[in-house]
Design a protein around this nucleic acid. Structure first.
Length: 280
DNA sequence: CGGCGGTCCTGTCAGC
DNA sequence: TGCTGACAGGACCGCC
């Protein structure tokens, strides 16, 4: 499910319900997710109050009142399900069930179990194995054209693979990689090192725009969610190229029968979508 | 050292 | 209808 905008939306939605509340009950329904859960995970959370809920890269951070932080990742299929009360009947793959002191319930459901949770002292968070090598936040000022150009120097890998590398910039996943390259007019096959100067400027700007717009779309679906309750996560998507193989490219007035429209290719085992006419 | 492919796990869908 | 294989939004690890 989640790239940066989805995790951001989940974090904001959870914050609305959870900040200021206390974990009244925590049910751990299997010993492991992607990794074993920390020893006594449920017991160590019970009775703790929630100070803040944040995001770093695609990770969720839940700050507790005892100086510990819940570090979570939704993996590919992880979902947070929120309801006013704990359901009598849980769903398949509801691995963690959090009941709050106001009776509200948050469930972590993850079919593929690529998600994870850990409990880390706040003081050690930056040194955590999963966080210490992460690159800059794409929406921060430190990520810009010149910085991106510098990090791409010497890289022989295709630009699509490069921007999926979380050491280079965080938060861009398979969908928004295709979308950002389309907006920047860059071929996903282009050698990363050749994205310099104006091209790097365009790509950095496109990444920021694509992610910002997706967060805004998530915010509008959050309003519905807050009223309706239920799942936090993917919202309406209006992708320009992702999952649109064979369809006409928006803004390309070429003959679909001749060009074949949006193309799909496989790069290091993952699908990429692009318009060969508008992306060079 | 960088870059690529394999791998973890379950669900869904297309094709036969 | 039932089976099989491909594929799915992530990211670590080991190997070349």
């Amino acid at each position: 499910m989640p790239e940066l905008p989805e995790v951001e939306t989940v974090a904001r939605g959870l914050a609305l319900r959870m900040v200021g509340r206390t974990f009244a009950k925590v049910e751990q329904r299997r010993p492991d997710l992607r990794f074993p859960l920390p020893v006594d995970f449920a017991r160590r959370l019970t009775g703790r109050s929630i100070l803040a809920i944040r995001r770093r890269a695609k990770y969720l951070l839940i700050d507790l009142d005892d100086g510990q932080v819940v570090l979570g990742h939704l993996g590919m299929s992880g979902r947070m399900l929120v309801s006013d009360a704990r359901p009598d009947i849980l769903e398949t793959h509801d691995h963690l069930v959090f009941t709050l002191d106001d009776g509200a319930c948050v469930r972590f459901n993850d079919a593929r179990r690529f998600g994870m949770m850990d409990l880390v002292p706040l003081a050690e968070l930056d040194r955590h194995k999963l966080l210490r090598d992460l690159g800059p936040e794409p929406l921060g000022n430190e990520f810009n054209g010149p910085a991106l150009a510098a990090s791409l120097k010497g890289k022989k890998t295709p630009i699509k693979s490069a921007i999926l590398d979380q050491k280079l910039v965080v938060g861009v996943g398979n969908i928004y990689a295709s979308e950002s390259l389309f907006r920047a007019g860059l071929s996903p096959k282009r050698i990363a090192a050749t994205v310099q100067g104006e091209r790097a400027e365009r790509l950095a700007t496109s990444i920021k725009q694509v992610l910002t717009e997706a967060i805004a779309a998530g915010g509008s679906s959050l309003r519905d969610y807050v009223q309706a309750d239920g799942e936090l996560g993917y919202f309406q998507h209006q992708w320009k190229v992702y999952d649109r193989e064979g369809q006409a490219c928006a803004g390309c007035d070429c003959d679909l029968a001749k060009t074949g429209g949006i193309r799909r290719l496989s790069q290091s085992g993952r699908s990429t979508f692009y318009c060969s006419r508008r992306q060079r």
